[in-house]
């Protein structure tokens, strides 16, 4: 590998890690919900999209008030966005999924795709179908490499994305492993009926799972709206598909798996669009999904599931 192509490779790896962080954040919502109630929550991508809109709104409002401290913007945006998307996550579960508990598998699945279609068009109705874009909040970065050749560019925003992702994941992991509610979550995902017998309020745990997933999706949404400065009602669809792929790739039901899957997928896509054609990065993601299902259906870190007979 010549020097410049090595640098190019590093650049793609950086971009891939950034993208992968976003996927990983969304994928956790899929994996947690699947782990507990065994359902693909198709509406999760839309929750992320709403998070991105809220992020943009808050940034705009703060901009109108003349706030320009990055840390303040970030904290305020995250807080509001998590509140709103968490509410969406809770409401969706309460209205569209909880009444269907115990129905045949197909029923909540159709309801979920209904919610997804509904939310996409509902946001379109409120905010319009067109792209909403704005000036990036955080610009600049570091350059590495020879003056006259290819230079690796690492933007501050990319570093911020990585940092926020790592912090969120750490908080989540601590919550799941240390807190009472977190233990209840784990118990439910192993055996819901048993957890129920032991006096755990499974409905509450399920609701909490949706809220947690939505909160991480909100983090992803906020980061994306700050990074690209561009949002439309349709971004949730593809992002949701990718994040689900990441969840399957890592092993559905496994939280570390979702993180790993997100990063792997992000890298794969970044390299694919650099070395193949940009249009085909989605094809690569899809091929990866099929490949995993063929070769290792339980994913990189998942355990093969034993269906209770």
């Amino acid at each position: 590998m010549s020097g410049s192509s090595l640098l190019e490779f590093i650049q793609q790896a950086i971009n891939g890690l950034t993208l992968g962080s976003i996927y990983a954040l969304i994928a956790i919502g899929y994996t947690m919900v699947y782990g507990i109630i065994g359902m693909i929550n198709f509406a999760h991508g839309e929750i992320y999209m709403i998070g991105a809109y809220v992020g943009l709104l808050v940034i705009t409002v703060l901009g109108l008030f003349g706030v320009d401290s990055i840390s303040l913007i970030l904290l305020a945006t995250l807080a509001v966005s998590i509140l709103v998307t968490g509410s969406y996550g809770w409401t969706v579960e309460r209205l569209a999924y909880r009444p269907l508990r115990g129905s045949p598998r197909l029923v909540p699945l159709i309801s979920a795709i209904g919610v997804s279609i509904f939310l996409q068009n509902y946001v379109q109705l409120g905010q319009g179908a067109r792209d909403v874009s704005m000036q990036p909040v955080l610009t600049g970065g570091w350059r590495f490499g020879p003056e006259d050749g290819f230079q690796v560019y690492l933007s501050y925003m990319q570093v911020l994305i990585a940092a926020v992702t790592v912090v969120s994941m750490t908080v989540l992991t601590l919550f799941i492993s240390r807190s009472r509610m977190g233990r209840a979550c784990r118990a439910c995902s192993q055996d819901r009926a048993m957890a129920n017998l032991l006096g755990i309020d499974t409905d509450r745990v399920i609701a909490l799972t949706f809220v947690l997933g939505a909160a991480l999706a909100a983090v992803a949404g906020v980061l994306v709206s700050m990074y690209y400065g561009l949002v439309n009602p349709f971004i949730g669809f593809i992002a949701g598909l990718k994040a689900f792929t990441a969840a399957v790739l890592g092993g559905i039901g496994s939280i570390p798996g979702a993180m790993l899957g997100g990063v792997v997928l992000g890298l794969a896509e970044s390299f694919a669009s650099a070395y193949l054609r940009t249009e085909y990065k989605d094809v690569v993601a899809f091929a990866l999904l099929i490949g995993v299902l063929l070769v290792r259906p339980s994913g990189l870190l998942g355990r093969p599931d034993v269906e209770k007979v």
Binding site: A96, V107, I113, G114, S116
Partner: peptide
């Protein structure tokens, strides 16, 4: 204009009331 919105809603409501 409301077609897709209605489709989404119909899927959810049908699953709840008349699967």
């Amino acid at each position: 204009e409301y077609r897709m919105l209605a489709f989404g809603l119909v899927m959810v409501l049908m699953m709840i009331w008349r699967p």
